[in-house]
Simulated scan of single mutants.
Amino acid sequence: MSTQLGNKKIMAKNIQYYMDLYNKTRNDICQDLGIKYTTFTDWIKANTYPRIDKIELMANYFNIEKSDLIEEHNKESVQSDRPLPSNIILPSAHKLPIMGTICAGDGVVCEDDYQGTFIVDIDVKADYCLKVHGDSMIGANIYDGDIVFISKSYDFVQDQIYAIERLDYNEASLKRVTQDGDTLILNPCNPEYHAMVTDYEEVRIIGRCVGVLHKYV
């Protein structure tokens, strides 16, 4: 164990470790602790070092000691010293990156922004996760704040839900997709929104939605 204090890289590594362990994203922590997103991003990128009051705030948040964030540890010692959360998935689990936010509304730019990882069962055949913003897919039980699991590899199936990028507007959203020849019909699952008719030259299918985790369970 190193006793180097004020080491930005060690701090960044430790923060990221506990974020992964407790399935927390940058947005989660910033919202929960009232920390500016840019400030927190600088910490986990080892650009700056948090003040002692912020270190204590994060330590209390993760229910750990301040030294767990300040000092260098190997993974085995951290795991042996601290009990794992009761809901953590171990041998049959793997991590998926959370790659930002996708719209389930009238169309917004998809934020391609790595926000940490999410631990899922190994049977979930997905490549990454996206957070949902909007209510256009509530008829498919996909709600604002949910996390959807996206597979980049898929065989197109009619009336399934896909992540779609509109190339002309650089917009991305979730839609139930129907194909008719070269035409694609992008259907929301909320009667307050209208379907859009387009073709493959105007959109790109980012991936297929293979699962959803509700924000409130």
Rank of each mutant, 00 (worst) to 15 (best):
E192L: 08
D53P: 07
I206K: 08
P97S: 03
Y17W: 07
R166S: 14
D28N: 07
G34V: 11
Q31A: 08
T38Q: 13
K215F: 14
K9S: 13
M137Q: 08
E56T: 04
I15E: 09
V210L: 05
K24P: 02
G100S: 01
C129G: 11
L184G: 14
H194Y: 04
T183F: 06
V108A: 01
P188N: 01
N170M: 05
I138E: 08
E71C: 12
Y128F: 15
F149G: 02
V109H: 00
R51P: 05
T178R: 10
A93F: 01
Y37F: 08
Y37V: 14
D155W: 04
P188E: 03
L57D: 12
G6V: 05
K66Y: 10
T38P: 07
G145S: 02
V120T: 15
L33R: 03
L186I: 05
I52R: 11
E56Y: 10
A126C: 05
I164T: 12
A140H: 07
I185D: 01
I29G: 12
R176A: 10
S80H: 15
R82Q: 00
G107W: 03
N74T: 09
V177M: 12
T198D: 07
G181H: 11
G207Q: 11
C30Y: 02
Y169V: 01
Q160H: 09
S136W: 08
Y216V: 10
Q31N: 03
A104E: 06
E65H: 07
M196Q: 14
M1N: 04
H94D: 04
L167T: 15
T25G: 03
H94V: 13
P50R: 08
N141S: 13
A172Y: 00
V108E: 00
D113T: 06
W43Q: 06
Q158L: 02
E65P: 00
L57Y: 06
Q158N: 10
D135F: 05
A59P: 09
N141G: 13
K95M: 15
G145V: 14
S2I: 03
I150H: 12
L90I: 03
G145K: 06
P191K: 05
E192D: 07
Y49G: 01
S77G: 01
Y22A: 04
T38W: 09
Q160P: 07
E111S: 04
R176L: 13
A12S: 14
F118K: 11
H94T: 15
K75L: 09
R82W: 01
I142T: 10
Q179P: 07
A163F: 13
Y22G: 03
I15Y: 11
K131G: 07
L69G: 14
P97Q: 06
Y154T: 09
T39W: 06
Q179D: 01
A172N: 08
D182S: 13
D144H: 13
C129N: 02
I29A: 06
V148Y: 09
